[in-house]
Design a protein around this nucleic acid. Sequence first.
DNA 1: ACACGTCTAAACAATG
DNA 2: GCATTGTTTAGACGTG
Length: 354
Amino acid sequence: MAPMRGERGGSPARGVRASLPLPRRLIRQIARHVASSGRSLRRLEVSGRVIDNFDDIEGASDDSDMETSQPAVACGGNAGNLPPADNDDDLTSLSWLQDKNLLRGINLTKSDIEDTKTMGSQIILKTESKTPPPVVRPPSPPRTPVKAPPSPPAVTHTKPPYSFSCLIFMAIEAAPARALPVKEIYAWIIKHFPYFKHAPQGWKNSVRHNLSLNKCFHKVAAAPGLGKGSLWTVDPQHRASLIQAFGRQPAPTPAGAAEPSGGKNSPDPTLFPYLARRLAAEPGADEYLAAATVLAMKYGPSVLEQLPPAASLVISRCTRDEHSYSGGGGEERRTAEALLHLAGLPPSPALAPS
DNA sequence: ACACGTCTAAACAATG
DNA sequence: GCATTGTTTAGACGTG
């Protein structure tokens, strides 16, 4: 993974008190959308960073905005003093979101990353509406001030509250081919849960133990050139149980909705949008669904109840075009839509694909 | 108390 | 021979 961009080499936008982990153009899109809904956006928080002066942002020039290949805004605060983020050491769920293209274009500073490790990623829109939109927040930790120092490593490398079978499941499901060799499963887990980078070696044994013992996972013929070992996949017939394990609650199965007569195990898309969409192979929703999964992982599955039903989501429907990372505006639109959804706001017609 | 799921550790065989 | 992968067994722990 390329080093995080945005740590150096720019100047903060005038009047913006906090560093901007978001492209200003995106912020303006959100602000305009909120305004169009009769509210006024006064405060935006991403991972604890507060952006509260939208008048200045509104007055900024579009041309100075972030291009997909360049950081739009140099991050201020303590970010400028931080060394460049290295590779896997700094990967967190937010990094994954960037990988998944949801937050692509959003510059995360190292302190952003650190914040997410301790308090979870927060994407919060505050408006002046008397009935503020639902806010996705981690359950307990106190707000981190903008200039909060990096979190202590002891907190950043806590063991994730997910069983190995869940971790393996997510790793495999995250793979394009839904199949991974053991080594790649290790890598995925380490990448997204840095705790395991320095965890005692036994966890790999546990992973293999799980793969072998758990009937949910099946070995398939090794790909040519793979070397030693096989590819591991999730048994479709056991997905439901894995989903239940993931959610720590039984997947609701409305009458006639879910069951295998049609050969499809369809988890409730409201509770498990990522898995639901993945299983349904619906194109184009990976970005939001990845975000939803991350939210569920960070805050627990109950957070998904705060999100709109997956069926109502309008993220992207055109896979090829929208997965082009260099495409003009598609990323930001997706990001904007996803953020709006995460903030409980309806999708903006202005953001809809033309 | 019991069953169950999970985690951890260990031993061992097979393989590259 | 070594490291990795895969299998199996055993014990401990937490939960319902």
